[in-house]
Design a protein around this nucleic acid. Structure first.
Lengths: 308, 308
DNA sequence: TTTTACACTTTGTCTAGGACAAACTATTGA
DNA sequence: TCAATAGTTTGTCCTAGACAAAGTGTAAAA
């Protein structure tokens, strides 16, 4: 009577492909799901939980063969050790306490209060500092807490919704009622089809709008050909893309390369976010922005280039 | 030198599983992709385009074996014929002209103007009429135009982003600064993990908030166990779920059934949206709301039940 | 004529194990 | 210490068979 789920549900809930799940079972003996009356795999919730933690560690650069036989506890510890950003944050006491306060609100399911406090911090700090100094590290902390199992998935959803509400309100208040066509740079924001995390994109949009750029966001998951069509239709100067850790490195590089080939040379590509490949093997012909604060400098450079 | 894409890219861009793509090729001879130097399938853009139209028709209840050998033109015509809602709209001249105006703005890529005009209509009509009389049919029209190929994908993204911005602003202005815990019903809004369309959810949220309900949205794609956890943590009276046409009917019913089993009996499940199964084989023990206007009546009924 | 029951057909997803390139690691030689 | 080479690991693709669930059609009963 224990709850178990099919392979396609496991694929959905863990982010690991069916093929990967089957080949791991063959090679490493984990996961070794039960079989239902039809001989089909039935994964237990414990297995799914462990798979989720494994996925997170793979995204951080670990290799399955080395870590697959660790217990969930060992894996969670490994996850904690391997994120220096959090340890850093943990040391700068006061600031960290504030961040932790927001995480605690998530855990207490106080969506209203969370939203209210975020909005308050926003007014106090101003949008730019709010994003760079609060949202960015907070996102990290939340992602980390989620990987540890400290934060449940629905609590993370609650967080994402609240942040989104606050950010979107801020952006819509900043946007010009009737933006002149001529204002430049014209920036097209979106993510590749595999990437469904939209928070990074929203933060980038806010910073761009603050800097006076002309932003058009397509939301997440736009097919490459459509990004090209949109960039041409909008005569975009820059296509800005956001990547999360969870994205397949191969697809990141392949996608950027494809896009570069199909976009006019006059359109720049700016890539931001926490995909490890961007730092490790930054692709030529694409501008990589390791963090949001770089947007300011890069925009100045763009204006300088544009003058010429 | 013609552009072609891998099977996993085709899966992404069409919404058809790899397995389905392979088995169609085996059974019907379509799609019959080229093979690259490694013997792997390479789908042409034309094939992907046809597959997309096919997917849309399957979602409307057509069967692959009957329609797979039609040309793209024939399929598009079929798509147009089989949506009575649009034909109806096409007949009520004046209103239709207004809707068409919005679609035209999408086609002209005037995101700013689109957003502005939507906001204007919103102020003029009030939120409830705006959603029920404008957004709902407009969504239909846009979905239809997309299936026809009249509207490009990125134009549809532009539409979604604009609507979302307008709706979210409206909702955040309505929400109580500090909602009393005691206000009821407490409604948890989200979609099942397979469902990534969030517009319907947002429209429902707006109506609920207007009606004075206590809304907590988890955004899209929440795993079933997490919906249960969230509903318990929030002591939700109602779990409201939104479904689009594109969702697999089997998973809709299975998901609703699972959820019903795991939620406390005191928590009601309300299902809305355009999934054909909801109309054809409405599941017991779940309240089906065929359209947004029903929310009002159903809420009155809820309050009556609650009195007792 | 409409409804119910049963058989037949269609369709999507699962199964298995083999193959291979790309990414990563270790070892060698300069 | 670094660069090139050889070996290992890993994910995704391949084929082809199986089966239940959903849909369709036909015949008997109401």
């Amino acid at each position: 009577m224990a709850i178990s789920i099919s392979i396609s549900a496991a694929e959905r809930d863990t982010g690991l492909s069916k093929d990967a799940l089957r080949v791991w079972e063959r090679r490493y003996g984990f996961p070794a799901p039960m079989r239902d009356s039809l001989g089909e795999r039935a994964y237990s919730l414990e297995q799914v939980e462990k798979l989720r933690v494994l996925k997170r560690l793979l995204d951080q650069g670990h290799r399955p063969g080395k870590i697959i036989h660790y217990s969930v506890q060992e894996l969670q510890q490994l996850a904690q050790e391997s994120v220096p950003a959090i340890k850093m944050a943990a040391e700068s006491g006061a600031e960290n306490a504030e961040l932790q306060g927001f995480v605690d609100l998530c855990k207490a399911h106080q969506a209203e209060t969370l939203r209210h406090n975020l909005a308050q911090s926003l007014s106090r700090m101003g949008l730019e500092r709010f994003i760079v100094e609060l949202m960015a590290p907070l996102n990290q902390l939340v992602g980390e807490a989620w990987a540890n199992g400290t934060l449940q998935i629905f609590e993370e959803h609650l967080y994402t919704e609240s942040v989104q509400a606050v950010l979107r309100t801020a952006i819509s208040m900043l946007q010009r009622p009737h933006a002149a066509e001529s204002i430049r740079p014209r920036i097209l924001l979106t993510t590749l089809p595999q990437e469904q995390h939209g928070l990074g994109l929203l933060m980038a949009e806010a910073i761009f709008v603050l800097e006076g750029a002309n932003c058009i966001s397509l939301g997440v998951q736009t097919p490459i050909m459509e990004i090209v069509n949109a960039a041409n239709a909008q005569r975009a100067d820059i296509v800005a893309l956001s990547f999360s850790q969870a994205m397949n490195p191969r697809q990141v590089l392949q996608g950027l390369e494809d896009l570069r080939k199909k976009l006019p040379v006059t359109t720049e590509i700016w890539a931001g976010g926490h995909s490890p490949v961007l730092a490790r093997r930054p692709p030529q012909s694409v501008y990589v922005l390791p963090n949001l604060a770089d947007i300011h400098t890069r925009l100045s450079e763009w204006h300088a280039r544009d003058q010429k």
